[in-house]
């Protein structure tokens, strides 16, 4: 009986083709086609609220409990964000804390992974220096943060870990933060006589040092 069904389906299709009236469409559909079995409306799953990660204060971190007492005074806070430990220290106690973290036999943080900075424009202590340290003995990665104002000089850790040499040079080059006790503090990525510190928030991304360009390059007129 497929031949009979086909013209029916065709006429239905023709009827429903150009129509926008829903009622007529559903009436036509119900005439010829079999009614589909009525399903129960699925019960909506209870929405599980995703836990928004946030900074949690931590009191019992074994690493920071083993620190020397003199050094532990400068620790302002110990927090955890997504299972990563962050310790904020004051700038005056930074160098002693780093020495203790490396020399303490239980901790042995002998691998300085990274040194970088953040710029919170508008804050009185504008820069935030971030040090990532790893201990082979404990198998742990921790983060030390400290705040510094715009013209404050930060103690260099290049005498503690040799790898800090170029990392601090890069921070100086891009942010303008000066390090005391650094063997060779000069620009590393930008030309030596560049003016300005690009990664600061008040430095526009397209700002080129025109004085440098006019003294070093001969710009030709580009063909149209």
């Amino acid at each position: 009986m497929s031949d009979e069904e086909k013209p029916k389906q065709n006429s239905e299709a023709q009827k429903t083709a150009g129509k926008t009236d829903l009622k007529e469409e559903s009436a036509v559909a119900e005439e010829g086609a079999e009614k589909p079995p009525v399903k129960d409306k699925p019960v909506p799953k209870p929405k599980v609220k995703k836990k928004i990660p946030s900074y949690e204060d931590v009191d019992d971190d074994p690493v920071f409990q083993k620190l020397n007492e003199k050094v532990a005074v400068s620790v302002l806070s110990v927090q955890k964000f997504l299972d990563q430990s962050i310790c904020t220290v004051s700038l005056d106690g930074l160098y002693e804390l780093m020495v203790d973290l490396r020399d303490n036999a239980d901790l042995d943080f002998n691998y300085l992974v990274d040194v970088t900075a953040l710029d919170y424009l508008g804050d009185e202590q504008r820069f935030c220096l971030v040090y990532q340290l790893y201990s082979y003995k404990l198998g742990r990665l921790i983060r030390i943060k400290t705040r510094a104002a715009e013209d404050e000089v930060v103690p260099s850790v290049s005498s503690i870990w040799k790898t800090a040499d170029w990392l601090e040079r890069e921070v100086y080059d891009l942010f303008g933060i000066e390090f005391s006790g650094h063997p060779d503090l000069r620009r590393i990525l930008l030309p030596d006589d560049w003016h300005g510190y690009p990664l600061r928030k008040d430095y526009d991304i397209k700002l080129q040092d025109q004085a440098w360009i006019s003294s070093h390059l001969k710009i030709r007129k580009t063909p149209v």
Partner: peptide, 9 residues
């Protein structure tokens, strides 16, 4: 993402 930081290696 929420306010925060992460170091992935």
């Amino acid at each position: 993402p929420a306010v925060g930081e992460y170091f992935s290696t």
